[in-house]
């Protein structure tokens, strides 16, 4: 039957359990640290490969501040920039990676994370006609705003707020590109 509940036994059993558990977790952490890092890297690499076709090796992460907001981006020499841009969507943060070529054209966009409504705003991850309109977009010639706001982005049906946020995220990424290239 259970050991007596005196102070010594209680302290001893709690200490032993905590020690054994932390030792076990420390061991597993050491083993999984490398695969976890690799899995994260692979995810970033897959996103970059989608927005900047033709990139080959893992570029290094860099940071820049535009209008008081910090952005993370990847520079792929000879191809362009992959900028991570997060804005306020309909249901929460909407995070995109935007690929911009050396000459300032948008190559492709991919959603990194979102909390948009399933079946409505969440279509921004699957609706090809919506996503594909940004491919080859020239921000100097066409305004990055939904048509309702006077731009040329075709919004997803019934999801104007998500589409507006998406366009905002892309135009923020363009601002990052302009800042990065203004001194060249």
């Amino acid at each position: 039957m259970a050991a007596e509940s005196n102070l010594k036994n209680m302290a001893l059993s709690l200490t032993v359990v905590c020690l054994v558990c932390s030792a076990l977790l420390g061991g597993v952490y050491a083993v999984t640290a490398e695969p976890i890092r690799k899995a994260e890297e692979a995810k970033v690499a897959a996103s970059i490969a989608r927005v900047l076709p033709g990139f080959s090796e893992q570029p290094s992460l860099e940071k820049v501040s535009v209008d008081g907001i910090d952005y993370t981006y990847y520079r792929v020499p000879g191809t362009g920039y992959a900028v991570i841009s997060t804005v306020d969507g309909f249901g929460g943060p909407l995070s995109l990676m935007v690929g911009i070529s050396e000459d300032g054209l948008i190559m492709n966009t991919v959603v990194l994370s979102h909390s948009e409504t399933p079946g409505l705003g969440a279509k921004c991850t699957t609706d090809e006609s919506f996503i594909d309109q940004f491919k080859g977009w020239d921000p100097a010639a066409k305004r990055l705003e939904v048509r309702k706001d006077g731009g040329e982005v075709d919004a997803i049906t019934a999801s104007t707020i998500t589409s507006r946020a998406y366009a905002k995220a892309v135009s923020n990424a363009v601002a990052v590109y302009s800042k990065l290239t203004e001194n060249e």
Partner: peptide, 8 residues
């Protein structure tokens, strides 16, 4: 379970 004191 057999060796854990009841209170904790």
């Amino acid at each position: 379970a057999p060796v854990v004191p009841d209170k904790v």
